[in-house]
Design a protein around this nucleic acid. Structure first.
Lengths: 185, 185, 185, 185
DNA sequence: CATGAATGAGGCTTCATTCAT
DNA sequence: GATGAATGAAGCCTCATTCAT
């Protein structure tokens, strides 16, 4: 009985991701977003009451996907390699999470809540990775002479290695290999 | 009755670094900068004609320091470890360089020039790291079965591993060790 | 499954009154009105083509009631006291009329017309009060040494005396008494 | 050493008063204010960080004046009449105080503080009036058979009686006279 | 040089109103 | 009639930058 929607949440999320990747959080405005979506700026306010809510909702949504997929990692024969595969896919997400510190959490209670939930999910993600590493240590596959936290951080840091011009698989293979075997000849 | 506080470039750089580390580029304003320096906002314009020039000049200055220090790395017995040591010190710098994409290069010709010079210096940095890795490969210390670029990227990615509550030396030891020997038990 | 709630003009008026008394004209929006009514904002446009029409129609409606009741005042033995009784009841209305100056009369021809009619009715109200006062003067009950206009204004100003925690009757008694006898001991 | 000021606080206050009296709080914007002052809108933000701070500062300033002047009322032979004289002058102020309920006190801590201080000053004002009335009661000049609060409210309500086309003195005389002697012949 | 004043551009947000179903 | 979607106008505010002293 009302007009047909011209945009939906998915389109908003997609455009948001593109914009943030193009120009970072500082370059992310409802103005550019609305232009990208081809609607009026105020239209977006019918969906999100402010910038921060949109961005945090979006990031929560992404994070949820990775955390969920992390649960399937256990089932693989080489869980660390499976994790690296996930990594390659979510390089963008990682880049986007970097904007968190610059988000004004006081913008609205919902933003604050979203921020808290994200923090919890990131902890959860790290815990899952730790779990995987521990399990591999138990199986004797991973060294135990270095602090667990350091190992996890090193694994996580590889998300920065650019996939560049190779396929995700090649990237995963190489990085996993170097990560496991080390640089030495 | 010195009502007019005077400043110099070094003070500006120091305050700039602090501000960017505190709140990122989005939180870096001439307003807060002038407050930190205890001068009028307009005073800064006697030194820099715009925000972008200041920031890029500052980053160029920092980058120069690391690149210079990279030259001493060759002299160490274990150049990769020496590099990691540099890394631990320049974690902040790396964090700061991440803001580059968000800087409007068209702000002034000088900014554009600075940006170009930074790009060149970053290339140079990468080349130096590549040089170190190649030399180590030549000595038989580093594997050759993986693309050089990937190896360099992995080395560079470790700058993300947080130093956290350990000393720089401990960090260097651990990360270098895992990097060389791999995760495997 | 009546998904579409229907409304009528009376409900609109009631909700309007409540809202204006709660938060004044500045706080009166179709948004809050529709929420109070439990309908879509756009639904109200089936009844009123704009905010100003609604508000002026409503005030006209209220004003009409007082003016009509004023006609019964003559029948009382003490018409001034009867008027004060009316006053106590219409304190709210008075408060509401105060928003008139802030209404944009050019919003639509109907609004302009409503505003004019309200102005006329307010004149009429004042005339009626003047009539009552004159009649009382003729009967020798009210002093004649002060301009009629001033006396009327003073009577009308008492609408500002808050009823507070007393009954309307007590209020009427006290105010009428002081008004007639004066403050002096 | 800096440019000359083109506006000062007094001018801002004057323009504010004019605007609010012309079009009420709803019609009071920094836009219209800046136009009236002949400066850019943002210039006003160099003086007041938001609308509410300006308005409350201004009202506090006005209120302070009346409260101060109230202290001189005791010295007059007929303090009530002196008070009425003050009243005639501050009719505008009273009108302006009516906007208080529509001001968003959460706009900034300063606004909240201002609002509190205004509330206290209004209490103080009322107390002073009560003091005057009591003293007059003690001297046997004012009746005691009606609640003190009601008497005070009636006195205060006269601020609504328009001065219209008469001089302040005539107004004061008439209103004081009717207030004291009552309407009756 | 340093300053404080003024400014304009740009971004945020709300709300009355229109539109299509 | 009632609805939800979309919109534009209008107001808010911040900040880099320019200007005059």
């Amino acid at each position: 009985m009302a007009r047909h929607k011209t945009i939906d949440q998915l389109q908003i999320f997609t455009a948001t991701e593109e914009l943030i990747l193009e120009s970072g959080y500082a370059g992310f405005h409802f103005k550019s977003l609305s232009e990208k979506l081809g609607v009026a700026r105020s239209t977006i306010y019918n969906y999100y009451t402010n910038k921060e809510e949109l961005v945090t909702d979006f990031m929560l949504h992404m994070l949820q996907q990775v955390v969920t997929k992390m649960d399937t990692v256990h089932e693989h024969e080489e869980p660390i390699r499976a994790m690296m595969g996930l990594w390659a896919k979510y390089a963008n997400m990682h880049q986007m999470l970097q904007i968190m510190p610059y988000i004004d959490r006081k913008a609205s209670p919902k933003v604050e809540q979203n921020a808290k939930r994200m923090f919890i999910m990131l902890e959860e993600l790290r815990n899952k990775i730790e779990g995987v590493v521990k399990e591999e240590q138990r199986k004797g596959n991973i060294r135990q002479d270095v602090q667990l936290g350091t190992l996890v951080s090193i694994i996580m840091s590889t998300v920065q290695v650019p996939v560049a011009n190779r396929s995700e698989d090649e990237w995963t293979n190489d990085v996993f290999n170097v990560l496991m075997q080390g640089l030495k000849a």
